[in-house]
Amino acid sequence: MRTELLTRKKIVHTALALALGGVLLWVGPGRAMDAADAPETVEIDSLAKLYSGVHFDHAMHTDIASCGQCHHHTTGDKVTDPNCIRCHANSGEADIVSCRDCHSRDRFSREDLSRLSNPLLYHIDKPGLKGAYHLNCVGCHEKMGGPTGCEDCHGMTEAGERMFHTGKHAPAPTPAGGRSGH
């Protein structure tokens, strides 16, 4: 019967999909992640609006920094921050290492704020995704002498130029004297 056949087909397909998914998602015990497993480059563009995304040279950065300096305790590196050691001294590698899986992109939304107001939560001050990127990158760049200007990492978009009144949206030059008094 046709319906029966269809059903059988469906079952086979589902089983195949599950098997394939299982292989792809399978995480072996004691897997040790090192820099070689990491991507060469990462396109950081999920928030791009006023500025274009960042073409992040991940390989270059793994040469000058340890994984844990950016990924905290998630890559299996030993943590050194005394505040983190309190709980994460023996934290192994985590299943998720990407920034966006922990740092919320809808920071300060009603949902985000109600999540953070849980009285049992320790991480009440976890930055959102945009804050996490900038605090991590700019903070280190300031210490290491890396570029710190906004457009050193990402160019401004048309929407950005409109908001900042710059580029082709720049204000017309005012006559000498500048700001009028009152």
């Binding site: 704020l113 804050g131 700019v138």
Partner: peptide
């Protein structure tokens, strides 16, 4: 219930929006 425009624009999260009573706790924690 949305944060003001300046807070949303801040790349460094130098501006943290939230209930005032909770912001005091965050400040004390920092």
């Amino acid at each position: 219930g949305k944060p003001p425009a300046c807070v949303e624009a801040c790349p460094q999260e130098a501006l943290t929006f939230g209930r005032r009573s909770e912001l005091i706790k965050i400040g004390q924690q920092r």
